[in-house]
């Protein structure tokens, strides 16, 4: 009797174990499929873009990257003005955003009293939550008119006549243009860069910081000579992440850049970027060559942000390696 029940219980238990093993394997495989799906998705994006961009690359060859024409009427397209606009607006954004983000990170980690730290970081991060189309509307209807009326004329008059640099600040004060786009991009990427900087600054061991203070360093010397060298790789990684954002940003730029396919020296000119061209023309594009050229622009943008991201990851990894623990 006892032997009978025991074997029944054993049978029961082993059946139970079998069932859980099957469920385990199923669960594990479902999660694996989901993870592989992410990989497949990115590969699919690359393949689809490449296939659809191929007619344009095939037709225009290397000229697609070096030519300046963008002429839908004659079905002649090339990417130089868009690539140029993308790179220049992002460069302006970085020139403004990096020092500002550094200042904010410095303020939050070293200067602000404890009660002010969280509110300031959250407020700055809210800048990242505002949709880019709002930046665009504000830029076009509020910022650009004021900028064009009060600030630009002054800059054109006073800096526009300098040798070398002056050429960058000439032309009619329209308010909109490459510089305005870069400035708005700067505001948009400040929260990304400053939050990475803040995080890596707080990774600096307290001992390092305190021993620097102990030998009589000022706050600035501690930050500039101790904190910054220690976190250099992480800071660069944060800058790269911000740069990636700026390169791909679409709506804000589309509103304020003026959307013209020309190449000029002045930053106050209207211009275009890869993403603004796509936003403006993709739905209206007629004919395979036109659409294909636009997809080719998208592919180029994807590859540019890919390279920037890879650099950022590499730098942040180096930072993590020195830290000695994976982040």
């Amino acid at each position: 009797m006892t032997a009978l029940t025991r074997s029944a219980a054993q049978r029961d238990r082993s059946r139970h174990a079998q069932r859980s093993a099957v469920a385990d394997a199923m669960f594990r495989n479902i999660t694996r499929v989901a993870a592989l799906l992410v990989l497949a998705l990115v590969i699919a994006i690359l393949v689809v873009l490449l296939v659809q961009a191929w007619p344009a690359f095939h037709r225009f060859g290397w000229h697609f990257f070096s030519g300046r024409e963008w002429d839908p009427a004659h079905a002649t397209f090339s990417a130089l003005t868009s690539i140029f606009g993308t790179l220049v607006t992002s460069a302006i954004a970085m020139v403004i955003a990096v020092p500002v983000s550094f200042g904010i990170a410095l303020f939050i980690t070293e200067l602000a009293p404890a009660w002010l730290r969280a509110p300031v970081s959250i407020a700055v991060e809210l800048l990242a939550a505002i949709p880019s189309i709002i930046y665009g509307m504000w830029g076009l209807f509020v910022f650009a008119p004021l900028f064009g009326e009060y600030v630009q004329p002054w800059i054109i008059e006073h800096i526009g006549s300098w040798p070398w640099v002056g050429a960058l600040f000439q032309g009619p004060p329209m308010g909109i243009g490459i510089f305005t786009a870069g400035l708005i991009l700067a505001i948009m990427v400040v929260p990304f860069i400053s939050s990475v900087m803040r995080d890596v600054f707080s990774l600096v061991p307290t001992v390092l910081r305190e021993s620097a203070y102990g030998v009589g360093c000022t706050t600035w010397e501690v930050v500039w000579r101790v904190v910054l060298p220690y976190t250099r790789a992480g800071v660069m990684g944060g800058i790269m992440l911000g740069l990636g954002r700026a390169l791909g940003e679409t709506m804000a730029v589309t509103f304020v850049i003026g959307n013209s396919h020309t190449l000029g020296t002045s930053l106050f000119n209207a211009g275009n970027t890869i993403s603004s061209t796509l936003a403006n023309e993709f739905t209206e594009a007629v004919g395979q060559t036109y659409t294909s050229s636009l997809v080719a622009l998208g592919l180029i943008l994807f590859l540019i942000t890919f390279v920037v991201l890879a650099l950022a990851k590499l730098l942040l990894l180096r930072m993590a390696a020195r830290e000695g623990s994976p982040t």
């Binding site: 992410v38 990989l39 998705l41 990115v42 699919a44 994006i45 689809v48 873009l49 992440l241 990636g244 954002r245 390169l247 791909g248 940003e249 679409t250 993403s275 796509l278 936003a279 993709f282 636009l294 997809v295 998208g298 592919l299 943008l301 994807f302 942000t305 890919f306 920037v308 991201l309 990851k313």
Partner: peptide, 16 residues
């Protein structure tokens, strides 16, 4: 690859 997707310009996703 997930980080690539995270930083991919959203307009490129639209094109895809």
């Amino acid at each position: 690859v997930n980080d690539i997707l995270l930083s991919a310009p959203s307009i490129v996703i639209g094109v895809f």
